[in-house]
């Protein structure tokens, strides 16, 4: 059994015995700065704009819908099953397809779509990141395959940063198989360090804060 052999080798190398508890780990270092909501929203927008992300602050579901409708006009669109999108009426837009529960069908739809619309579970104010947790409401590929990604984020979900996220979710694995942080559009600089957006993921990212 390679498993036993390797574990045995590790223990021998470390001078430990099987089942021996570890020494006390260093204390966790999570510091949450005190930043009011407005400042978090502003910082989020500023950080994302710097990365070439497009942002908009909506004051009503109708404004969200207007933004989405304009962006989606004449495009093939896939939307996630998030209640937020439904509440804003996005799934009712004529060219938006939604309500996928089958992985293969969803994949096909996403591969052919121009725009993917999702919500975000959280957003991080300091880095301009979206946090999307895979669930029956949010799939992985909608924010990934279409060349344009639109995300709707309820303002109360904007956190200060990573430290706050991991304070709220000390162990994301307990609730999902996949949590992804998205910080700006997909990019590469692999050839001569020249920045190119949209290499594999979306080249455009739009976030509407509600």
């Amino acid at each position: 059994m390679p498993r036993e052999k390797i574990l045995h080798k590790v223990r021998t190398a470390l001078g430990r015995s099987s089942g021996q508890p570890p020494a006390a780990p260093p204390p966790v270092r999570l510091r949450i700065p005190d930043v009011p909501l407005d400042a978090r929203i502003e910082s989020f927008i500023c950080a994302l704009n710097k990365l070439n992300g497009k942002t908009c602050v909506a004051h009503s579901p109708q404004e969200v819908l207007d933004y989405a409708a304009q962006l989606c006009e004449g495009k093939r669109v896939v939307a996630s099953n998030s209640p937020v999108l439904r509440e804003c009426g996005i799934v009712e837009l004529p060219n938006v397809r939604s309500n996928y529960t089958d992985a293969d069908k969803l994949r096909e739809a996403c591969a052919a779509a121009d725009i993917g619309i999702t919500s975000a579970d959280y957003a991080l104010g300091d880095t301009g990141s979206l946090v999307i947790i895979a669930s029956p409401r949010e799939a992985r590929l909608i924010s990934l395959l279409p060349p344009v990604h639109l995300a709707i984020v309820p303002r109360s979900r904007i956190l200060t940063g990573l430290d706050e996220l991991f304070t709220l979710l000390p162990n994301p694995a307990e609730q999902t198989s996949s949590m992804v942080l998205i910080t700006g559009p997909s990019r590469t600089a692999d050839i001569e360090q020249i920045l190119v957006r949209g290499v594999h993921g979306p080249r455009e990212i739009h976030v509407v804060v509600l």
């Binding site: 990141s129 694995a173 949590m179 992804v180 942080l181 998205i182 910080t183 700006g184 997909s186 993921g201």
Partner: peptide, 9 residues
Amino acid sequence: LTVYTSFLS
């Protein structure tokens, strides 16, 4: 932060 950070379990 890099563009994508995936936490997969």
